[in-house]
Design a protein around this nucleic acid. Structure first.
Lengths: 202, 202
DNA sequence: ATGGATTCGATACCTTCGGTATCGTTAGGG
DNA sequence: CCCTAACGATACCGAAGGTATCGAATCCAT
């Protein structure tokens, strides 16, 4: 297990990640060049390409390493409350400069199959799994109806957030989160299930 | 009022639109070059740029002119049935090679503000307006609860379709449409409203 | 310590692509 | 019939992602 030659510089690695995050969140993926990122990091272009195979992989890493935890589930008194707070958090995340990063990566992924897979497996799926868990807990605590189709529910709730982020179809404010959350509970809250039983009894 | 000089060739115009549609639906926006489109159309590059200011505007036009009507609302016995059929139609549209075109334009719009505006105003908004009308009709015929927030309902339903199209998070098949439609009616169908009244009476 | 292997930052370079400029040629309205 | 603008073709420009190569620096193994 040879460790021959000069070792990789962790400082350079970190500086490039930070520079990439700063520039891309601010101005977007396409309008930031690799030369700029290297210059901002005070690093040679070839050093950058020794650490990442291409621009997309670098920015994807910057997202995961530097701000991946910003959408973690907050602690809350109940699962359903935690879900609600995470929806707000996700909307705030999209509304902030981080939103540019997500928009950029989704856009780039449309013409870069490798990036598409990486984004789905390393960003989307882990977060879906988190929502999945919390929804199962919400079912267990009796806040959501037990016959809910969780995957589709996630598509509806989080799909609408991505829709507004990418299509610019409307504000990603708390009022919007309020509304989709209310509409969601209207159909999937435990009280809706109770009402179904009323209907069934008739 | 002057019509001096050689007139624009409608044949060239149409050939470029057709070539752009064919190539971009097949291979995607980024991997098709303007040179290819011009060659495929049997047209000089400068002729292309005399008819459209840039590649994005051309492809946007191809979408609207050639296949804009493919997502029109089908005739159906009731408004709610028409809504359901249009959802299926939209999913089939996204699932077909047309989906590549939409994905390409949404992606490109993330770094092209003019295209973003054009796509929203010329594609998204007109179709949202169609859904809006049909949902109002569904309320009027008693198929949807009268207190529905239509704009948010559109975000939920169609947002989830765009989400699956762009994130590749799952199949856009009829089963999926079935499920989101059922979940939608669960919360917003008129019977749900009736059940609310049962709850209120207690 | 010293030498070999590898990374470092810097810079020149290659290729591709969107878009422009310029040819001589062609069509048609005044 | 002729003047003007569009036509197809092609050369060109600038920006950008990625590669190649440089001498210098750094660490491990001997």
């Amino acid at each position: 297990m040879s460790e021959i030659g000069r070792p990789r510089s962790q400082a350079a690695h970190d500086a490039v990640l930070k520079a990439a995050l700063r520039l891309v969140t601010k101005r977007g993926f396409r309008s930031v060049s690799v030369n700029e990122i290297a210059a901002e990091a005070g690093v040679g272009k070839m050093t950058l390409y020794r650490h990442w195979p291409n621009k997309a992989a670098l920015v994807m890493d910057a997202l995961l390493v530097l701000i991946g935890s910003e959408t973690d589930f907050p602690e809350a008194g109940s699962a359903i409350e935690s879900l609600r707070q995470q929806l707000d958090l996700q909307a705030a995340f999209f509304r902030s400069s981080r939103g540019n990063l997500i928009r950029s990566l989704v856009a780039e992924a449309q013409s870069d199959p490798e990036l598409a897979i990486a984004f789905r497996e390393r960003w989307v799926n882990p977060r879906r799994e988190g929502v999945h868990q919390i929804m199962r807990a919400a079912v267990a605590e009796g806040s959501l109806r037990s016959d809910i189709d969780i995957d589709t529910a996630i598509d509806l709730l989080y799909g609408s957030l991505y829709y507004r982020l990418l299509l610019g179809a409307g504000a990603l404010d708390e009022r919007f989160v309020d509304t989709i959350y209310d509409q969601f509970l209207e159909g999937h809250g435990a009280s809706a299930q109770a009402l179904d039983k009323v209907r069934a009894r008739r």
